[in-house]
């Protein structure tokens, strides 16, 4: 399954909830959730710890818009909107953690 998160992990527990609940699969960070995948943020440790169970992707245009494209944590894949579409197509279901 593809899990889509759009909120910063420092202001909303959506990502943490997803990591604690989902059995694995793909996670795509979009909008304000891209902050989760930047080095030095307080959630970085939890994201890194989840990388064994999940494949983490980050939406590059959202990262660029926020001035953080040079700070992506190692192990997270960068995708554009076409890559976003491919992730949705490749997974049988997707869940937006709103």
């Amino acid at each position: 399954m593809l899990h889509i998160i759009n909120r910063s992990p420092l202001s909303d527990i959506a990502l943490e909830s997803c990591l604690n609940t989902a059995t694995g699969g793909d996670i795509l960070l979009i909008e304000d959730a891209v902050y989760a995948a930047t080095s030095g943020n307080a959630f970085e440790g939890k994201l890194r710890a989840a990388m064994g169970r999940f494949k983490i992707s980050v939406l590059r245009p959202d990262l660029e818009a926020r001035g953080l494209s040079d700070r992506v944590v190692e192990g997270a894949a960068l995708v554009d909107y076409a890559g976003f579409v491919e992730l949705v197509a490749a997974n049988k279901t997707c869940q937006s953690w709103l």
Partner: peptide, 13 residues
């Protein structure tokens, strides 16, 4: 941003 993201997704699809 939801409507913008949805539009960009639709366009790419």
């Amino acid at each position: 941003q939801a409507s913008d993201s949805a539009y960009q997704f639709a366009k790419a699809a």
